[in-house]
């Protein structure tokens, strides 16, 4: 550092020494900024650990490390006898995911249409409306959506289907709207030039261009929806989640593990199916 400054001084050029000062200053400022940032992070970590882990945990109830390991060990056994009775709920979970995705796609059509800047019907109103729909859909967790729909339509798969549909609108509509914004405008103008109306433009010029991309997004979301529908039973929407909760409430931990294995198998099946579906689409 000082050799740098000496060199600048011996060169005896005023602007060069000034430039060196500036470089050193900016480096020093950068170092201060980084170290302040790191300090803030560390303080936040310490504070959070103090509040969430040390103060809030009921250490007496948890007991020694051995008792924790014993409690965890109860989940290691698998209740194989439960599997035959899991087939029905597993199929139900898959069906809730499929129908939820389908309904979500239906709701997505207007959301993507309004939310794409280049085709939105009336920009000051419809564009913010669609964006609001997408944000609301994505920001509320599926459990909360399911609670709401259980209150409205009652217990059962329908509440789960609605919850999953509404929850998946945000992502599918956002990706579709972005795909629509990126289309090539040639076909749109060609259809307009031969006298096509707005509906025909959408059907023949826009849809064919975005279809592969949108189908890919739908398949991706369907895969996630299987994961989501497997837990909606917690709030009364049926399927594997209901069995899971029942096993947990009767303290049959081996049964809980069995349900988790069934969920994993279902997700694996979904991943295999989505692999083939994606290959067929693209």
């Amino acid at each position: 550092m000082s050799t740098f400054r000496q060199a600048a001084a011996t060169a005896d050029v005023a602007w060069r020494s000034r430039a060196a000062d500036q470089v050193l200053d900016s480096r020093r400022r950068r170092r201060y900024r980084v170290s302040t940032f790191v300090m803030v992070l560390v303080v936040l970590v310490v504070w959070s650990v103090q509040v969430t882990i040390i103060d809030d945990t009921d250490w007496e109830r948890m007991g020694s490390l051995q008792s924790v390991l014993a409690a965890a060990g109860e989940f290691l056994a698998v209740d194989w006898a439960l599997f035959p009775s899991l087939a029905g709920p597993a199929v139900e979970t898959l069906m809730i995911a499929c129908l939820g995705t389908l309904l979500g796609v239906v709701i997505c059509v207007p959301a993507a249409w309004f939310g794409a800047l280049n085709i939105t019907p009336y920009k000051p109103v419809t564009y913010p409306l669609a964006r609001l729909m997408m944000t609301l859909s994505r920001s509320i967790h599926e459990i909360v959506w399911a609670l709401f729909f259980v209150a409205v339509v009652g217990l059962g798969p329908l509440a789960g289907i609605f919850a999953i549909a509404v929850r998946s609108v945000g992502f599918i509509a956002k990706m579709s709207a972005e795909a629509i914004e990126d289309i090539d405008h040639g076909p749109v103008e060609a259809i307009r030039a031969v006298g096509g109306n707005g509906f025909q433009v959408m059907l023949y010029a826009i849809l064919p261009q975005v279809l592969p991309q949108v189908l890919g997004v739908i398949i991706f979301e369907w895969e996630i929806n299987i994961r989501r529908s497997a837990i909606l039973g917690l709030v009364g929407a049926g399927g594997l989640g209901l069995v899971f909760f029942r096993q947990l409430n009767t303290f049959n931990f081996a049964g809980v593990t069995a349900v988790i294995i069934a969920i994993l198998a279902l997700i694996l099946l979904g991943e295999v199916l989505s692999y083939f579906a994606r290959k067929a689409v693209i």
Partner: peptide, 12 residues
């Protein structure tokens, strides 16, 4: 759910 049933209620 798994961690709650192993460790008890709380933020941990």
């Amino acid at each position: 759910i798994l961690f709650v049933s192993i460790l008890g209620f709380g933020m941990l």
